[in-house]
Amino acid sequence: MKILVCISHVPDTTSKINFTEGDTKFDTNGVQFVINPNDEFGLTRAMWFKEKQGASVDVVNVGEADTEPTLRKALAIGADNAIRVNTPATDGFQVAKELAKVAQDGGYDLIIAGRESIDYNGGMVPGMLAKLIKANFVNTCVSLEVEGDKATAIREIDGGKETLTANLPLVIGGQKGLVEESDLKIPNMRGIMMARKKPLNVVEPVGADAKTKAEKFAKPAPKGDVKLVDKDNLDELIDLLHNDAKAI
């Protein structure tokens, strides 16, 4: 089985989010970038398929050279090859079209992406990619098994779960559940050394157009001070929730 894992390069979850150039650009100053958490769960599941079912695992990112450390980290975790499509990621449609080319050229059986990236939260790349390459698609995937050319997946729905089956090729939008938090691997020294020697192929983009553009950004209005209620005066809290917030 040939697996492709799509890796989004995103600010670490603890990052302070600031903007520059008149609030039109994300300020990367002092920001550490990581593998998008949803993708990392998928990558770790791919490692399982590699170990248990002899799958090969490629990772891909659409982005400029500054995303390479993130791809190297994926190699250190155990991916075999990395591919970088040499163009900035501008919107979900553009990224999906660039990925579609890589997916078709590579003839992958299974493509694992994250349900959303934690920066732009578009939640569209996996579904668009699937439709573009006419593969089956399962979103918010929390469990995945493959036997031959048949996949069984569990998808999280609002308030429950759904079990789905589909033939390969399949694209999933993955998230936690694909593997447990405790299964995530921190690359060891050997992995990091080996990753340096693994191929990281830079391919030129097809030049897909974006259909949306991030024009500007804004930060939420600063929060007013918390209203503290004495623990011995819970009636006051109920009163506030009922009369002020009208929430109960």
Partner: peptide
């Protein structure tokens, strides 16, 4: 969850930005 699942598929069908 269902709308988020179908949205990108619809976007490709309609060549629409989402």
């Amino acid at each position: 969850a269902n709308d988020k699942y179908l949205a990108p598929v619809l976007a490709v069908n309609l060549e629409a930005g989402y």
